[in-house]
Design a protein around this nucleic acid. Structure first.
Lengths: 237, 237
DNA sequence: AAGTGGTCTAGACCACCAT
DNA sequence: TGGTGGTCTAGACCACTTA
């Protein structure tokens, strides 16, 4: 028998997945949910605690429990690991280079768990930190998940990409994996980042997942690490 | 008032820090500890759970709770994030290049929280994965924490470096932070890793911490990422 | 003052492991 | 069979927010 709190967690996840509870909103109180699911408050709290640990819910004492909202601050703290030499972090400004309709190649299909040739959006962007171009992104998004996405929606400046996923498509990114390596920058990359060849760049291949480990974004990113680095923390807090 | 379970956690940590409970051993059962500290089993379990989350204790159902032991498998799962293109991980074989007594420069002193000029061990090593040289390490260890450490102890093959810290000095590494960047390899690095200049290498600056955030190891590491990458996971499981 | 999440208790039963 | 950790309950009181 699977533990009861896992079943409760499933039910909570279902409410989120079907859009019954939307990002930024409060969910019902713990005593109420405990009654609704016919479990004790302790069991209900354990299920909620797991979703909090997974960045899906956020507790605020005295106010309630909320569906996590991908504000800029939230993004910065959870998913953006690039900081300057003094340990300061800031979100980059994005500059769209190109927005195309394409088809998934083998690598993209494998990462996004779709078929080779399935339609994807293929988006290039250059990101600046404190005015300097530092990051080059090439994203591929499964077109099926983002009906009607277009260049204009994409280049709006009032939110992050993942904030837009959430507000417009109800897709909440909960987890990413990134594979890092060092490479020599090619001519094109040097030009866009203002580097003199030969130059080394940090290559990051990211896959982002929504609830239930659904892949929603696959991107290759090149970072100029002359003035910045990528921070990784291993083990306990 | 700080919560009771935090106080209990402090008491548990004290038992570990003073060496009353040694790595690999069972600690007393939960009902017994709850009685000893005069708290309920739930409160005791919460304190233990936090130490488990911090990689300091390990629970085994039906057997007991153990002080984490830095076996090779454990290291591999928690602290070693380098894997090959197919996602396979293996611990490297180490080859000592040099072992010297030195003094902390500014960067080492800041990271290790000691004074500039304090004695440190300065150790270079080359690490091989599947026979190929892939990693170059330059470690600095505060000499005060490792009395009588020498080249022979260090180059023994029966354990990892952190396993040796624990078995010989009672120091358990619980957390590391790593700052990653890409650099062009210098001539020396190219030679030791068998690279043709110009080549890009992944530079990792690691600080390792024991209980209570005591820094115990600071190292600069260069990795050839032609056949390997560094894996970083962000957000919930 | 009423409602929220945060802490804490004192039990119960279950699943697993050693003997 | 006895001891371990894992789950679950049904309460209580506290700290904090909002109205």
């Amino acid at each position: 028998m699977p533990p009861l709190y896992k079943a409760v967690k499933q039910k909570l996840t279902e409410e989120l997945r079907t859009g019954r509870w939307r990002h930024g909103q409060v969910i019902p109180s713990e005593p109420l949910l405990a009654r609704r699911y016919a479990v004790s408050i302790g069991t209900l709290r354990r299920a909620v605690s797991e979703l909090v640990a997974e960045n899906i819910l956020v507790r605020e004492q005295g106010r309630g429990t909320f569906v996590a909202s991908h504000t800029r601050d939230y993004m910065l703290n959870v998913f953006f690991r690039i900081e300057d030499r003094d340990g300061r972090r800031a979100l980059p400004d994005s500059e769209l280079i190109s927005f195309r309709h394409g088809r998934a190649n083998r690598a993209a299909a494998a990462a996004l768990q779709i078929a080779v040739g399935d339609p994807v959006f293929q988006i290039r962007a250059r990101l600046r930190l404190h005015g300097r171009p530092v990051i080059l992104d090439e994203m591929r998004l499964p077109a099926r998940l983002f009906p009607d996405l277009n260049e204009h929606i994409f280049s709006r400046r009032d939110t992050t990409v993942y904030g837009m996923f959430q507000a417009r498509y109800g897709i909440t990114v909960a987890r990413t994996t990134e594979a890092l390596s060092a490479e020599l920058a090619d001519r094109h990359t040097c030009e866009l980042l203002g580097l003199q060849a030969p130059a080394a760049v940090l290559k990051v291949i990211r896959t982002a997942y929504a609830y239930k480990d659904l892949p929603v974004d696959w991107r290759v990113r090149y970072i100029d690490t002359k003035r910045h680095h990528y921070l990784s923390v291993l083990g306990g807090p």
